[in-house]
């Protein structure tokens, strides 16, 4: 009997491609859905179109870049404290 083939769906390049498309499509969809909103912004600037999308994108990009930069100083070898 042949051994059961391992489930490796998420390793396949075509799956990864599909997931990318899905990710972009979902992002676009959330922005499109904003068109059907009756907005009542509390602070004014939060009524800007796709405000939360922009905020999410910029905030995460800045967080990643900042942690990358600060990591240059803060990251040390595993045995740092054992020396």
């Amino acid at each position: 009997m042949k051994p059961k083939k391992e489930f490796d769906y998420f390793d396949r390049p075509e799956t990864i491609k599909k997931l990318w498309v899905l990710l972009y499509a979902t992002c676009a969809l959330t922005v499109v859905l904003e068109l059907f909103m009756h907005k009542h912004p509390h602070f004014g600037f939060d009524g800007f179109f796709a405000f939360h999308a922009i905020l999410g994108f910029v905030a995460c990009a800045v967080l990643i870049l900042f942690s990358k930069a600060i990591g240059l100083v803060l990251k040390v070898k595993e045995d740092y404290y054992d020396k």
Partner: peptide, 23 residues
């Protein structure tokens, strides 16, 4: 919107997030 765009940033910046054997 907030979450999906965060997810997008994660995968776009994946190279920067590569794990290193550090503390």
């Amino acid at each position: 919107q907030l979450l999906m765009l965060s997810a997008l940033v994660f995968f776009l910046f994946l190279k920067l997030l590569k794990r290193t054997d550090t503390i």
